[in-house]
């Protein structure tokens, strides 16, 4: 199962479908946009023009590549409930998402059902990947200690497609090893690279596995599957606005955000309490406590896309 059908999702789906995988499930909440075409390899200009949902466009192209593969594709904003529904019969989860909210859910689902997953991400010329095996390796919750918040995204600093392809090579090589049950040859290390700076690191992180981890430890409670730890969204009646409230109260650094967003097309205004960023169609108002109002839409899916695009 692949969560997300952006750069990593389209690349990994194409590799696996060409390899003749039996069944693949793909879920994405977004539609194709022009800016996607530089790296999201299953999509065309026509689909950007028509704003075709990515899950629909991806399935069409993947079926044309290999008609024998059973492709289940969902236009869906995946969270806990959806993951619980989709997980049955899944051998491996590939992370192709763009945010840590869903990654923490994937991590807990993986532990709950004892299904391996591969964390992968990239931005700029940098990429990172780690294969998580329940009962063996540390989980993402062990590694992170705290959930990364904000910072750079593919839409704020860009991404070169070789970085995508490099992460895909790491991710799908590991996926193939898991799918053919050759665990002996798994990398067992956290890999990261920067293609522009000519860096690569592989480090062994086994010692970061925590016996008291709430996601994978003995007294586990799967915290990211509980309602209180999920990002909350609400459509504000009559205001053409969606409010997004992170699960934890934050102290967002509005000055750093100002610097990042000032490089984007749009207007940034800031006072000590909030920052407002206007694009041609939407306005994002970011409060210091982490709350964000997205003006110009009533769609929660669209609001989440904008939230993760500009705020990480």
């Amino acid at each position: 199962m692949i969560i997300g059908a952006g750069a990593l999702g389209t690349g990994s789906a194409e590799m696996l479908v060409r390899a003749g995988i039996g069944k693949i499930t793909l879920a994405d909440r977004d539609y194709v946009e022009w800016s996607n075409l530089q790296r999201q390899q299953l999509y065309t200009e026509e689909e950007a023009e028509q704003r075709t949902p990515k899950a629909v466009a991806a399935k069409r192209r993947l079926s044309a590549i290999n008609a024998e593969v059973d492709i289940r594709s969902h236009v869906m904003d995946v969270s806990v409930e959806e993951m619980e529904r989709l997980i049955e019969g899944v051998d491996l989860i590939l992370d192709a998402s763009d945010n840590f909210d869903i990654r923490m859910v994937i991590n807990d689902i993986s532990q709950k059902y004892s299904i391996p997953w591969i964390y992968s991400a990239c931005v700029g010329s940098y990429g990172i990947s780690y294969t998580i095996l329940p009962g063996e390796t540390p989980c993402l919750n062990c590694l992170l200690e705290e959930v990364p918040m904000g910072g750079i995204t593919c839409d704020t600093v860009g991404i070169i497609s070789p970085a995508v392809q490099m992460v895909l090579s790491f991710q799908i090589s590991e996926a193939l090893k898991i799918l053919v049950e050759d665990r002996l040859h798994l990398r067992n290390k956290l890999v990261s690279f920067d293609l522009w700076k000519n860096h690569q690191s592989t480090i062994k992180v086994d010692m970061l596995k925590k016996a008291d981890c709430l996601s994978c430890g003995a007294e586990r409670s799967y915290p990211y599957l509980s309602f209180s730890n999920q990002t909350k969204t609400a459509v504000l009646c009559g205001r053409d606005t969606v409010q997004i409230r992170p699960s934890q109260r934050l102290d967002r650094d509005l000055e750093s955000l100002d610097k990042i967003l000032s490089k984007r097309k749009g207007e940034v205004k800031r006072n000590p309490y909030l920052l407002s960023f206007s694009t041609s169609n939407h306005r994002l108002v970011v409060f210091k406590d982490g709350r964000v109002l997205i003006h110009g839409t009533k769609s929660i899916a669209e609001a989440k896309t904008l939230y993760h695009r500009y705020l990480g």
């Binding site: 990429g127 690191s201 993760h308």
Partner: peptide, 10 residues
């Protein structure tokens, strides 16, 4: 020293 930071894009 090896420094590996987590990013979110994909």
């Amino acid at each position: 020293i090896e420094l590996v930071h987590f990013v979110g894009g994909g």
